[in-house]
């Protein structure tokens, strides 16, 4: 998946001559923590964050201050064609709240925020869709993963998502295949997974 698949677009922007007080209100209203700053041609020239505004408030003379006086110039940007891995790694490493997404002409086409990362995660897990969850313990991926996927393949219309966990917890223990199924009754699929010799987690047991 690419940044264009997960970014928020179109995105609200502001201009360097806007008053910080007005931008503060806009951000509170839209519940965002940063806005890209663009020039008259729509080109990115900076980013203004809630933190920048907070610092400006503390410094005094706030009523008359403009975005230009408080924004960060030359922010780190993304391209729509960047991978999500690239965006996620940057967000984590730099601890950014968000990064503007720009095209070849530096025009702002979107924003990719932590919130967008969470939306991607929710989408990957399939949480927006009604379904049931089945967890399968995978101790020997070479053998059991094939069995699990072969079994699930017979019910492809019912599968919302299937994710194999990375290393389980701290140790070298079993990995888990988390499956969300588009049904109120995962019983038949659970049964088939068990019949294939797999260990299906029993919640609450």
């Amino acid at each position: 998946m690419l940044v264009r698949d997960g970014m928020t677009s179109p995105v609200m922007t502001t201009t360097p001559d806007a008053l910080l007080a007005a931008v503060d209100d806009q951000m509170a209203e839209r519940r965002v923590h940063q806005l890209p700053v663009v020039d008259a041609a729509g080109k990115l020239i900076g980013i203004i964050t809630a933190r920048d505004i907070g610092l400006a408030m503390a410094a005094g003379g706030f009523e008359k201050r403009t975005v230009e006086s408080a924004m960060t110039t030359e922010p780190v940007t993304l391209r729509p064609s960047d991978t999500l891995e690239h965006a996620l790694t940057l967000l984590l490493r730099e601890r950014f709240g968000a990064m503007p997404v720009v095209d070849e002409q530096d025009k702002v086409v979107g924003i990719f925020a932590r919130h967008d990362c969470l939306k991607v995660l929710s989408n990957v897990l399939g949480l927006e869709e009604a379904g049931s969850r089945v967890d399968v313990e995978i101790a020997r991926p070479a053998d059991e993963l094939a069995k699990a996927l072969t079994t699930l393949a017979g019910h492809d219309a019912q599968i919302i998502s299937a994710i194999l966990s990375n290393r389980q917890g701290r140790g070298q223990g079993a990995r888990t295949l988390y499956v969300r199924l588009r049904t109120i009754d995962p019983g038949p699929i659970r049964r088939k997974l068990r019949e294939a010799g797999l260990k299906v987690v029993e919640p609450g047991a």
Binding site: A130, R133, I184, P203
Partner: peptide, 8 residues
């Protein structure tokens, strides 16, 4: 809802 249908 993390475990059971419909997830809400």
């Amino acid at each position: 809802p993390s475990y059971l249908y419909p997830g809400t």
